[in-house]
Design a protein around this nucleic acid. Sequence first.
DNA 1: GAGTGGTCTAGACCACGAA
DNA 2: TCGTGGTCTAGACCACTCG
Lengths: 254, 254
Amino acid sequence: MPDHGGDRRPKYQRIADELRTAMDAGAFAPGDRLPGENDLMAAHGVARMTARQALSVLRAEGLAEARKGVGVFVRSFRPLRRRGVTRLSRERWGNGRSVWSADLGDRTLVVDRVEVSAAAPAGPRVARALGLDSPEAPVCVRRRRFVLDGKPVLLAVSYLPAPFTEGTAITEPDTGPGGTYARLAEHGHRPVRFREEIRCRMPTPAETTGLALEPGTPVILICRTAVTETGVAVEFNEMTLDASTYVLEYDFEA
Amino acid sequence: MPDHGGDRRPKYQRIADELRTAMDAGAFAPGDRLPGENDLMAAHGVARMTARQALSVLRAEGLAEARKGVGVFVRSFRPLRRRGVTRLSRERWGNGRSVWSADLGDRTLVVDRVEVSAAAPAGPRVARALGLDSPEAPVCVRRRRFVLDGKPVLLAVSYLPAPFTEGTAITEPDTGPGGTYARLAEHGHRPVRFREEIRCRMPTPAETTGLALEPGTPVILICRTAVTETGVAVEFNEMTLDASTYVLEYDFEA
DNA sequence: GAGTGGTCTAGACCACGAA
DNA sequence: TCGTGGTCTAGACCACTCG
């Protein structure tokens, strides 16, 4: 008979709370091992599935990660800072201190995979974002995966209207010094205005494998549209970020 | 006997995949009822816990929500757009209009709860963000909850150095026309530069209750620092957003 | 009252990693 | 080899919603 000991809350919630409180109090540091299923069964006198459910709560919250055959451990959060504005315009204004201090600015992202298609149909969504007349309009598609210290952290798919990329290095895996935007500028299509839209949700199975995500890790979606001085959209970039890795930063003026 | 039918993947994953694929194909529209635990047990010849685990996968992905005693249903996503740059431009808050008005479509976003403390110790984190000398330095703390059509979607905690707020309406629940920034401007502390830092993670239990979140819904954290022309930080604002409600938007130039 | 999802038990076999 | 977490079964009682 399930005796809740004067507490109406489910057992697995109380066990999870107890562990979470201990973690907050510093009893378990990031990387430390947590009590396993067997420990919780013995300590709380519950069945296997109940102990398991308690741990699954912590994993779903992104607080713990299980390693098969080893144990359950406290996850750590070491953010990678992405500066939305200054990264596209070399200019800084140093006021306003960062809240999440662990700034790994010196680490460099390595492109893991590149996949380029010189011309493919835009499709309705991309055509609308780029302001193209037809969903059949050809676009250059560049897919890339970025890896930080061996762990994939960012998937990016960039769409550019084919007329702007034909005969340029943009259709090559290596776009050359300055990257895509430098090539666009050389051909008179320099992007000057940007819009980034940000969403956040739980990952699809494809994203989970592509980013090697732990359970309980959301993804951040950034959709960037780049526009020239004359108001022509030259790039639509869809990025999928491991939310346990990234902190986004935007500086702007009133 | 666990017969995986020539497939190495777990049964619950294959069941979840089947439902997810059907949802993508449009067999289940947002709001539609999905096959329940009993349906899946019968259809796939599995035990209760296995069918349950399959559904829990979809809930953890934010795709489905369970209603006790009723069934499991496809979740819908109706985003609320938050414009990070233009919403803080001077014209917006200079003319007495609420900065939030621009965010709304046909829906209404109202402040649900306000809690103001005229002077409290900043604490190390806030002191650092505001560039205060001491963690004991007094700050005005304003806590607010915003509700959209009856559902809480945003928790905001704003910290302002007490010297800038003493004797102003900022220490009142109602800050008056133009809000906090208008009051700051009137006393010679007009914020002109802003930095917003964005993170995303799974919610804490407090956030889950405070925002009435469904399981499988991440939260977006925005930390905004507002700085005057002379480089003095006058506000540090921590916001917690229901990620299933919000889309953030940032416009900027190269 | 019937059906639903929420919680829980007491077993079982497996794959994995470390000693 | 041994302990770990991953999966799965076959039951059970409960609270909730709806007709």
